[in-house]
């Protein structure tokens, strides 16, 4: 964070701020496979599942190596037309570094 004139700038809340960590919850039976949550996730956390729900749709699931990648932007929750996905803050369960 060095500006052009050589001054080192440091955010005042750097010790308190961090990357939020979210946990994704999926209500698989409501999903209709529109794909909005999968396409517009900024961290590409979600993928289509190989399984289907009772209506025959491939619901989203967490990609294998992305279990802790959610940054809690909540966009999947907001865009979902079926109210089939939501996120919660997972940082309460983690030990703060």
């Amino acid at each position: 964070m060095t500006s052009a004139d050589g001054i080192v700038r440091k955010p005042m809340d750097l010790d308190r701020a961090g990357v939020p960590e979210g946990e994704v919850h999926i209500i698989t039976e409501r999903c209709k496979e529109c794909g909005y949550c999968i396409e517009y996730c900024p961290e590409k956390v979600l993928v289509y599942s190989k399984e289907i729900n009772s209506r025959g749709y491939h619901f989203p699931m967490i990609a294998e190596d992305k279990a802790t990648s959610c940054v809690l932007c909540k966009f999947c929750d907001l865009i979902c037309p079926e109210l089939a996905i939501y996120t919660t803050d997972a940082s309460d369960d983690e030990t703060q570094s």
Binding site: I27, T28, E29, I52, S54, L83, A84, Y86
Partner: peptide
């Protein structure tokens, strides 16, 4: 997630 699982409430 398991199919036919209605235990999660939005």
């Amino acid at each position: 997630p398991q199919p036919n699982d209605f235990s999660v409430v939005h």
